[in-house]
Amino acid sequence: MNQAGGPMAGRTVVVTGATGGIGKATALGLAAMGARVAITGRDAARAGAAAGEIRAAGGQVDVFVADLSSQAEVRRLAEELLRELPRIEVLVNNVGGYWDTRHVTADGLERTFAVNHLAPFLLTNLLLERLKQSGPARVVTVASNAQSMGRIEFDDLQDERSYSGSRAYNQSKLANVMFTYELARRLRSTSVTANALHPGMVSTAFGAEDPSVIQRLVVPFMRPFMKAPDQGAVTSIHVASAPDLERVSGLFFTKSKPMSSSAQSYDETAAARLWRVSADLVGLGAAA
């Protein structure tokens, strides 16, 4: 049930990848707290259905359709969001995926890195001025504990030499955390915060397009022990809305509490390098 005077009343929240799973549960939860939510998804029918659920629960919702594997689509989405939303108090970078075999995007980039890291990197940068104008504002990026197994392979970011779905995924999730920490450093003198989080092991359709052997054989047996999407969204909702986090920035949350991420994630030199490389790959160059 929507709370007109709820803790998020009057605030606009953008949630990417919100047509199912954790993203939809995050949007539903924040709408129930009074936020106006803008959801993005690549399938118009699924986005419409998700919006219908949010409206049925009494929430305010706007729908934006975009395939975030394409930089042109990310840029178009940003333009539409800026045109339609006078204020953006929270950006939840939720979109993500896992592909067991190597796929290349329309931009000629490896899909896991493009969707999981470059899309939120580009979208955040394109919306940053609006977030600053709307401050206090928050950038919340859904990472994963897989970051602890990740390595940023600067000599082979696109996994052209050899591809492993899990290695590509782990790298992208470490990139999410390093991006968050670098963004927090860059936003230190502003009223915009940046935090990342691990949602937990959640039962969703994650990886269903191109599953690994483990996902096909093991996950069905693990599902009874995995969190439901609404449980998986708890930390995202907390980091996006908790009043006591208004000035808290540059942290990694698990179970709604700040936790240490991997030693590599705190390498400021590598994070600055990743930012420069990412900016070049998405065409932001020195402007970022």
Rank of each mutant, 00 (worst) to 15 (best):
A31R: 03
G34R: 02
A35H: 07
V37S: 07
V37G: 08
V37T: 09
A38D: 02
I39M: 07
R42C: 10
R46F: 02
A47Y: 08
G48F: 13
E53R: 03
I54T: 06
G58R: 10
G59K: 04
G59W: 05
V63Q: 14
F64E: 12
L68N: 12
S70V: 03
S70N: 12
S70L: 05
A72F: 03
A72R: 09
E73I: 00
E73G: 02
E73V: 00
V74I: 07
V74F: 11
R76G: 09
R76K: 14
E84D: 13
L85R: 08
R87I: 03
V90G: 06
V90T: 15
N93Q: 04
N94M: 01
T101H: 12
G108H: 09
E110W: 12
R111A: 10
T112G: 12
T112M: 09
T112Y: 03
F113C: 03
A114Y: 02
A114T: 11
N116G: 03
L118D: 12
A119G: 13
P120Y: 00
F121P: 12
F121C: 01
L123T: 01
L123Q: 02
L126I: 05
L128Y: 06
E129Q: 14
L131A: 07
Q133N: 11
G135S: 15
P136E: 10
A137Q: 07
